[in-house]
Amino acid sequence: MTLHTALVKIEEEKISSEKAKKFIASEKNGAESIFVGKVRNENNGKKVIAVTYDAHDQAVIKSFQLICTNALNKFDKNAKIFLEHAKGYASVGEVSILIGVGSGHRDEAFKICRYILEEVKHQSPIWKKEHYADGKEEWLPGHSLRPKKEVK
């Protein structure tokens, strides 16, 4: 199998780089690239304690598969790709997204990793609500999926 994509209910299961390494392992790989995104403790001067990730599950999985297939077609048809994203309440330090790529060469491995990250941010219906140390919380602004022709 070339692709693994999943939304992980973070309160029930952790996203593991070991699992990603096992999935992408191959003797054909000259390069393995792992990107780990984490919940950080600060944003715009506010002390963050956690983030809640909301997601439209079916549409997210569809978008993950499309993005990864496009990445294979664009950069390396023989690459192996692992992509998991958190859903639910994730405390500071927890993994929010993990992308693992095994490829014949380093350039493709780096490029696929970066491509997937940027496309997920712009295509996958996932939302972040930050929880702050002062007890307040806020949904973060993002990228509109409204058809461009309609936006004036």
Binding site: G37, Y53, A55, H56, V60, H85, S96, I97, L117, V120, K121, H122, Q123, S124, P125, I126, W127, K128, W139, L140, P141, G142, H143, S144, L145
Partner: peptide, 10 residues
């Protein structure tokens, strides 16, 4: 139907 506010995962 679903309402999809501006997205921002990762």
């Amino acid at each position: 139907i679903s309402i999809i506010p501006p997205i921002g995962g990762g």
